[in-house]
Design a protein around this nucleic acid. Structure first.
Length: 475
DNA sequence: AATATAAGCAACCGCATGGTG
DNA sequence: TCACCATGCGGTTGCTTATAT
């Protein structure tokens, strides 16, 4: 039994809670009030005080995130950069969601873990406002409890899809059965973005089989459901975003987020995430220097981050951005050893884009200061802004599809874009089998478009199911 | 009331990765 | 090519709090 009592108010963040709070490399004392150069030599460890938090927040407010080692150099904070980054990421970021996990979040974690294993950061990416540490702690305590209770790690209905040898906590597949978590849409992650809140039940219902873009009938059947997820911003179950997919006559993004910096009104981001579908593929030039690809609408001022000169195409200015439409492309492939100019030429030609469209790489976004989710009240009218941009995105994607060559004319070399790696079967987790009929995809057509191996396609057809073993051949 | 145990959480550490000169 | 640095990730530790005995 080891309980240490510091004798100070435990609920007060300003109090030192650990009796062994010390320094990384010094025997000198730290008075907690900052200090001169001598104090900077000794890095403090242990719980953070409110004063330290304030210093760090002030630093980030002035200098932004990153360059964490500079915090100790430029402030009175006696913390290593690593510690600063951790503190900011896990506790001080403005868009953090505090409190217990909701039932939906817990279900999501279960599904994500079944698919990803102990990939806490990747899981956190699917849970807005949650940190990898939080998820990890949740999982570890849950594991302990279930082990002690002699229960399987996953509830019935969730099957582990990915096993890695590195983790001792990797679960064994459990029998599939109806599950309590059934109500929550499982995520077909599969290493690609498909839809963050993709509801298979809704997607498979006839009511969602609305018309797709009239410009893409040869690419996708009108029944393809994934692309119909449209979020009703007016009926959102959590601030700013809706969780209710609605049928949309246009192709809609699966999620839309608006980020801004509470510290800098000129610093804002808009990210629209599209379903991981053929569209992503058409827009995904493997080998771009970034996983992101911009679709710049005609006449819109291009405002980007500064790029290294070698990644900037001739004649394309890269001033500071002020907001743009970003298509989040599947982060599947690392950049190939091609220059940006080469890629630009390659893919502009490939997609036969009209002049008013230009493809540009997005530099890694450097801010995630605050999401609309967590502070909608701070920016009046933002909800409408998001909706406007959402609508605008619909229009733009339609235009883009118009501009892209028809599938039959996909030029040679497009196959280079096809990700042929094998992905595990699409497991919707609730007993829903995604057949090609229910998806409304004409696999033969798609296979012919992308010259997928007909043999493997037939193999899956015999199983009467559409799995991501063959879908990746098209996307 | 005192003690033991479990649960939850924050923070640290080592390592891997990517960028840069 | 290499070294250095910054950053990010996953595992682990150890503290506080809650609950049971």
């Amino acid at each position: 039994m080891m309980v240490a009592h510091s004798g100070v108010s435990l609920g007060d963040a300003t109090a030192f809670r650990k009796p062994n709070v010390g320094f990384a490399s010094s025997s000198s004392a730290f008075d907690g009030s900052g200090g001169g150069a001598a104090a900077k030599q000794a890095l403090k460890k242990g719980p953070w005080t409110a004063a330290e938090d304030a210093i760090l927040m002030e630093y980030v407010r002035k200098n932004g995130e990153g360059n964490w080692n500079a915090v100790q150099k430029n402030t009175s904070l006696a913390r290593c950069g690593k510690s600063c980054r951790l503190r900011w990421t896990n506790h001080l970021r403005p868009n953090l969601k505090k409190g217990s996990f909701t039932q939906e979040e817990e279900s999501l974690i279960l599904h994500l873990h079944a698919q990803l294993g102990n990939k806490w950061a990747r899981m956190a990416a699917q849970l807005p406002g949650r940190t990898d540490n939080e998820i990890k702690n949740f999982w570890n305590t849950r594991i302990k409890r279930r082990i002690r209770q002699g229960l399987p790690l996953y509830p019935n209905g969730i099957t582990a899809q990915k096993q890695t040898a590195s983790s001792p906590m990797q679960p064994q597949p459990q029998p599939i059965a109806p599950a309590a978590i059934r109500g929550w849409p499982p995520l077909p992650i599969q290493n690609r973005t498909i839809s963050t809140f993709f509801d298979p039940a809704a997607a498979l219902s006839p009511s969602t089989n609305s018309l797709m873009s009239p410009h893409s009938p040869t690419i996708l059947s009108p029944k393809a459901p994934v692309l119909n997820s449209h979020y009703d911003l007016d009926n959102s179950s959590f601030p700013g975003f809706a969780s209710t997919p609605q049928a949309s006559p246009l192709i809609s993004p699966s999620s839309c987020s608006f980020q801004f910096s509470p510290f800098n009104s000129n610093h804002r981001d808009l990210t629209i995430q599209w379903p991981g579908t053929v569209y992503d593929t058409l827009l995904k030039p493997a080998g771009l220097p970034s996983n992101h690809l911009f679709l710049s609408p005609p006449g819109e001022k291009h405002v980007f981050h500064d790029k290294p000169e070698h990644e900037t195409s001739p004649g394309v200015s890269m001033p500071k951005r002020s907001g743009n439409i970003e298509l989040l492309v599947n982060p599947l492939e690392p950049a190939e050893a091609l220059t940006w100019n080469e890629n630009l030429q390659k893919y502009s030609d490939l997609f036969n884009l009209p002049n008013e469209f230009s493809l540009k790489p997005a530099h890694a976004w450097d801010i995630a200061d605050c999401s609309y989710n967590s502070c909608p009240e701070t920016v009046p009218g933002m909800k409408n802004q998001v909706k406007d941009v959402n609508d605008q995105a619909n229009n733009e994607i339609s235009k883009l599809l118009q501009s892209i060559t028809t599938p039959g004319d996909i030029p040679e070399g497009f196959n280079n874009l096809v990700d042929s790696r094998s992905l595990p079967p699409l497991d919707l987790g609730s007993g829903v089998v995604v057949t090609e009929d229910s998806l409304g995809l004409d696999m033969h057509q798609i296979a012919s478009i992308f010259q997928a191996d007909p043999g493997s396609s037939d193999t899956n057809r015999q199983a009467a199911s559409c799995t991501w073993d063959n879908v990746p051949r098209m996307c």
